[in-house]
């Protein structure tokens, strides 16, 4: 199991997190239909680093983007996503 450093809770076991999708798969609400379907149905799917959206579902329930190498599982960056929050 991997360990992610949640921006709010610190290092936690991957069992508390659920993977949503990669950032390139986000369908923004105002996208034109063709762009929306392109985002939904094509992926870079690199054999290396990609930006992934995870949720700390069983922890602080917040969402975050994690830059992870899919071959070595090395995590290079984690940033919080969501409404403005008190520290």
């Amino acid at each position: 199991m991997m360990q992610f450093t949640c921006p709010h809770c610190g290092p936690r076991d991957q069992a508390e997190f659920i993977y949503e999708r990669t950032v390139d798969a986000v369908v923004s609400l105002d996208a034109a239909p063709e762009d929306a379907m392109k985002s939904l149905f094509t992926r870079n799917n690199p054999r290396g680093v990609d930006e992934e959206i995870w949720r700390h579902t069983y922890g602080c329930r917040a969402w975050m983007v994690i830059a992870r190498n899919r071959v070595t599982n090395e995590i290079s960056a984690t940033r919080a996503v969501g409404p403005e929050a008190l520290p």
Binding site: H8, G59, C60, R61, A62, A80, G82, P83, A85, L86
Partner: peptide, 8 residues
């Protein structure tokens, strides 16, 4: 008050 989440 107990805080588990960023906004709740």
């Amino acid at each position: 008050l107990i805080r588990y989440e960023p906004t709740v």
